[in-house]
Amino acid sequence: MTPTKTAPQNDLPEVYIDDILMTLKYFTDEHEVHLKIIDPQVCMNCESKPCVQFCPVGAYRTQDGGTVQIAFQSCVECGTCRVLCPNSNISWKLPRGGYGVAYKFG
């Protein structure tokens, strides 16, 4: 097969995800964090940091020094980061029973 161009033209609108997340209801676990970075050093060496792009709620944010922080409170438990982190550097668990996102409509 001849190589085909998959790189999309970048005409994506900018979106303020926090505005959108206002529509979601969460039961936040104050005592347990269900998502953790296993080794911050690995993130520092992870150049492209794809988690910052692919997480559908933008829970991953880059910090000064090249590590990333996870806003686990806004996670919708989709599973994408567990599958896509190229370094398998995320410890991914379901929130404890009753916690996490609670869709009102679904």
């Binding site: 998959t6 999309p8 994506l12 979106v15 959108i20 794809p50 792009q53 692919f54």
Partner: peptide, 10 residues
């Protein structure tokens, strides 16, 4: 998604 490096909500 990850190859294209796009944000799903965008």
């Amino acid at each position: 998604l990850t190859k294209a490096g796009i944000k799903p909500y965008e």
